[in-house]
Amino acid sequence: MALKQVLVTGATGRTGALVLQKLLQHPEEFNAFGFARSQAKAQDLFGSVDRFFFGDITAKDTLTAALEGCHCLVILTSATPRMKAPPAPGERPEFEFEPGGMPEAVDYQGQINQIDAAIAAGVQHIVLVGSMGGTQENHPLNKLGQGNILIWKRKAEAYLIDAGIGSGVDYTIIRAGGLLDQPGGVRELLVGKDDVLLTQAPNGIAPSIPRADVAEVVVQALRCPTAKNKAFDVISKPENDATAIVTTDFAPLFAQTTPDL
């Protein structure tokens, strides 16, 4: 099996770090590196910065060296809203994005920068991790900081599909449900399209998934040919669901998915 060189951007985020950690556990299969802004955060999470490149996805030139020789790019960057100030009693909190960190800049232009730089570098497969809700303009996450974050993510996904078709680069778009900080590998995973699982999940289950399971889906997408040129939503059944069959074979799961948005 040929060794795949993989770059994970957003590798100090809560999901990105899990993906990079999983890849580093398989050095016989993946030559994995992380890309992040903060050296201090990478050092704190990984105990070393030896496997890291540092830069800013809104400055495309900082991606060039990191992508040299890469076969695969995993995009896990995302704008992050922050609370303006503690709300007064009885009032809802207000959110904002840091200067230069609006979703249009990060989740759209920043992802375009990564896609363009990867194609220019000869990357063969781009895995983009996004969020469900991009078809719903009034989704609560779009209201945070007036950022329309899910809408910009969806636009970036469309760009990746068009760029992949035009360049011959394979894509996989994984739109996760609400992210849980719970153990992975103990649930049945479900895939869908166009946010149907947000409102029509079987048996009314919550449209959520552990971050660890999203990370495993990413790793399996790098391995499995049936994940290439697919875009899908993914959630999980609750842990210990009596009807669940824990997902351990990912080829059948990916076989249920389809191309295009």
Results as ranks from 00 to 15, higher is better:
K143S: 13
P103C: 03
A85H: 02
H71F: 06
E239A: 11
N113W: 00
D181A: 02
R14M: 15
P259I: 12
I165V: 09
N113Y: 04
T77L: 11
P225T: 01
D194E: 07
N31R: 08
Q21C: 10
V186F: 07
A117V: 03
D181G: 01
K230S: 06
A17L: 05
N113P: 04
K84A: 04
V234Y: 13
F46R: 13
G177E: 02
F232A: 14
L7H: 01
V106I: 13
Q182I: 13
G13F: 15
V49T: 14
T257H: 11
G47H: 11
Y159M: 13
R92I: 01
L7N: 00
A2F: 08
T12K: 15
R92G: 03
E28N: 15
F254P: 03
C70R: 04
T247Q: 07
E29S: 11
L24S: 04
G130K: 05
Q256V: 13
Q114M: 10
G110T: 07
C72R: 04
V218W: 14
D56S: 10
S38L: 05
K193S: 03
P86Q: 05
F46Y: 15
L3G: 11
L128T: 01
S48Q: 13
A59P: 00
F53G: 01
P238A: 02
V219C: 12
G164F: 12
G122I: 07
Q200N: 07
R223N: 11
H125G: 11
A65G: 03
A255G: 04
G122T: 02
D194S: 05
G168A: 09
L7W: 03
K155A: 15
T80Q: 12
E157M: 08
N148V: 00
I161N: 08
T58C: 15
K228I: 08
Q25K: 14
A88H: 00
L141T: 05
E91K: 01
L180P: 00
L197D: 08
Q5K: 11
S208N: 02
G122H: 05
M102N: 14
V19Y: 10
E68T: 12
L18W: 09
C224M: 14
V191E: 12
Q5E: 04
G145Y: 08
Q111E: 09
I205Q: 00
T62A: 15
A11G: 06
Y171A: 14
P86C: 06
Q43G: 13
P238Q: 03
K155H: 08
